[in-house]
Design a protein around this nucleic acid. Structure first.
Lengths: 204, 204
DNA sequence: CCAATGTTAGACCGTACGGTACGGTTTGAC
DNA sequence: GTCAAACCGTACCGTACGGTCTAACATTGG
């Protein structure tokens, strides 16, 4: 089988993603990964030199697959509340999806031991915060928001989005969030954000 | 018959705390724990029936040691901004302490596998949120804050406190936070919170 | 058809783990 | 002073891991 390697590589990464997200880094076993697709360890080690590098690539793929999505919602500075609400719902739905929740557990849990978090942060949260910051800067320049540090404002906005649901879902102290719960939480977060950062006397 | 056991038990828990916070649950080894105090495995297993139960008790002790502290700042409803600022600084300083940061990594990382998060959440975050909620309720009833759902407001307040520093510190994408950085971040968080939840036209 | 290459299955190596067993020693209560 | 409980040190058991290696099989290009 001289044929190309890309699809096999993908299959390995998919199986590895399952295993890592279910069992964590240490808990995941190479044998279990190859067992999931009927491949052999030899083959896996032909594509990836070690468990560590396989792990890093799995994480990077999860982030890249999910983080690019909700940018187009941040263009209409004429309707700040609407844009934030749309973006917030899309963002939080992704953030609370099973794959991203598993990713959060992994990256938090391994951040003491590994440097994977330092690798992934610029491609994940930092990127999102930068997009928000640009949007908020534009809105401030147009006088639609109170003038403030847009970087801090972006972090405050993201924190408010996470406030009600993220931690309980990740820690499994509540069931996964339904879509209407997400929308309601985003609504309250956007309200609080605009009350704090909107122009004086104006609400959402 | 040989004497008491409480100090030995404490010594084991201290060594276990070190080992778990440094290496995570799977990475920690019983042999290393007993090696830290020159004890023997037999002795450890006389005090704790398994690695799992030892782990749970270590986590519970960390929480109980740290979480009770900053309640007394939440009594003076006459000075809401000052109370929040004082409480916020104390809270965030604890939250960003090395032991609590390690705890966050542990509880997030193990929340997929173990039920320890469900056990600890009521003694940790939930308790803090309840205290804040009571304080906010009182402040609302006295007309010092806009009337809103105090539970949501408490979560928003806590999220704003975490917004700038918590994640970067836990993920080690920045150095640990200095006291003046913490105070400044709390200041911005309290400002944003009061701008959103204060009475109309009133700022901090 | 052949040679080269990719593949699978599984044995194998060294290591480390959680947990138990055992012999010998120290400690305290009586 | 006696005796039982607690202790240490270490060997041990069974298992599982990451990673390497061998050997048979499948698929391609020429």
């Amino acid at each position: 089988m001289r044929r190309k390697t890309e699809t096999k590589r993908d299959a390995i990464l998919n199986a590895a993603t399952l295993e890592f997200t279910e069992r964590g880094y240490e808990g995941a076993s190479i044998s279990a990964i190859v067992g999931r697709l009927g491949a052999s360890k030899q083959t896996l080690y032909r594509y990836f030199p070690s468990k560590d590098e396989l792990f890093v690539e799995v994480m990077a793929r999860i982030i890249d697959r999910h983080v690019t999505t909700p940018r187009e919602d941040l263009e209409d500075t004429a309707d700040v509340p609407g844009s934030l609400q749309r973006h917030g719902e899309r963002y939080l739905k992704i953030r609370l999806s099973p794959e991203m929740v598993s990713l959060a557990r992994l990256v938090f849990g391994e951040s003491g031991r590994s440097d994977v978090s330092r690798l992934l942060h610029p491609r994940g949260k930092l990127k999102v915060a930068k997009d928000i910051g640009r949007f908020l800067t534009a809105a401030m320049e147009e006088g639609r928001l109170r003038v403030a540090d847009p970087a801090v404002a972006a972090l405050h906005y993201l924190a408010l989005l996470d406030a009600e649901l993220f931690e309980p879902v990740v820690l499994r102290v509540r069931e996964p969030a339904a879509n209407d719960e997400i929308a309601a939480a985003v609504d309250r977060a956007v309200d609080a954000f605009l009350a704090g950062y909107g122009r004086e006397g104006k609400h959402a």
